[in-house]
Simulated scan of single mutants.
Amino acid sequence: MIHKIDSTTGDGIYGATFLLYDSGNNPIAQETSDDEGYVRFEGLMAGRYYLRELENEGYIPDTQRKTVYVRSGETTEVTWKNTPITGQIQITKYAEASSPITGQNSGTPLKGATYEFVRERSGKVVDYITTDARGVAASKPLPLGRYLIREVSAPAYYRLSAETFDVTLEYAGQIIKLAAYNKPVELGVSITKRGNAQVMVGQSMRYDLTVANTSNVPLESFFWHDKIPYDAARATTLTTGTYSARLNYRILYRTNYNASYQVLASNLLTSNNYSFALNAIPMQAGEAITDVYFDFGKVPIGFQSVVSPTLSVMAYANAVNGYQMVNRADVGGKYQGTWQTAQASWVTIIQRLCSTPTLPKTGY
């Protein structure tokens, strides 16, 4: 067995081909090193053999024949070193467009982009580099050959690039310089709310909502929340709506008697439209639901409501005529510690029918 290694790093070398000769200098077998640098010749009789290296991309070939002796019942291991012929790859990272979050202009060098180097022949990762404050990163000396280079971590508030560089180092001392660009993260969420313009005391009405992640990145801790106008109405029915990505989520609520959120339902599927009778939740006298909170966790780009969620309320019978009942809702999500939120509200005028008094008849 041969262990083919880099004389500088000690790492195994993939793809080195060896020819095995018997004691009479007759070629009898040919094998190539695996991704750990090992070459195995099996089933040999005890005796003397010769080894010769045929090819080894990226390394100075060692054409000297080596003599090995195989003993019955034993594994003979030969360590064979090669000196690499090296070049280097440099990457400079820039902002593709101005960032609304960091304030950096288009073309600004970017710190913190990490790249992975994969040797194409072996599929092994051979280096990682990260750009400095000048936006520059350089590989260690690499043996000549072909490399696939991918970004594995983007600078803060920039999107990970899907670009793969396919680069070949062809001669000793070659330096290949690459320019790479990242698109800035754009954060956005939206919420809309619609309901009745007017409602009679003692009557029900419904609010319809839409929510969306309009960012160009996924958001964590995504939620939408409704503040119920419990001073003028009581929540009766909640329907969850459906959403564009299949996720599990939960719904929380709280009341005017308890500032802590309680779980209404958990492990819900975004593909199902559930209905909950909020007025059936056991309450104390004078207690009312004040808030409903949808907790989705991490949501993908483009996440949005498909069938609109709804909230129905009933105006109190003793509500004041002409009172402006305000329902407020908000939505939000987080990216790398930065929150993005939006709000919506709807005003409904409460009406009460006023009967005209009957006046006494006078005259003849």
Rank of each mutant, 00 (worst) to 15 (best):
R352Y: 03
L54V: 05
R48F: 05
T236R: 06
V217N: 00
Y128R: 14
G58E: 05
Y50C: 04
Y261C: 00
L238Q: 11
F41G: 03
P100N: 11
L144S: 13
P309S: 13
N196F: 09
P109D: 06
A245L: 06
P100D: 05
A16N: 06
T210L: 15
T92K: 14
N256H: 09
E287P: 14
V118R: 07
S106L: 04
P109W: 00
P282L: 15
P218I: 14
N182V: 05
I251D: 00
E151Y: 07
A233W: 12
S72R: 01
E116Q: 07
V189M: 00
S33D: 02
Q64N: 15
R121M: 04
Y243L: 11
G286D: 10
F18S: 05
R254N: 12
R146H: 10
G73I: 10
N248E: 11
A259E: 05
L269P: 01
V152W: 09
D231S: 07
I289N: 12
D35S: 01
F303G: 13
K361V: 03
R52P: 06
A233F: 13
G10Y: 02
L178E: 01
V331W: 08
G112T: 15
A97Y: 03
G37F: 07
I2E: 15
T17S: 15
P300I: 03
E42K: 08
P300L: 14
D231R: 15
Y253T: 04
F303A: 13
G135S: 06
T102I: 01
K81V: 04
E220Q: 10
R150D: 02
N256K: 08
N248F: 10
T130Q: 11
N318T: 03
G107C: 12
A16S: 14
K111A: 06
R206C: 11
E77I: 01
Y323M: 14
N318V: 07
K334R: 05
L219W: 03
P357K: 15
Q324K: 12
T92N: 05
F165T: 00
R246N: 08
Y59H: 08
F41T: 09
P300A: 07
L160C: 00
A46N: 14
T348D: 08
Q336C: 06
V125N: 02
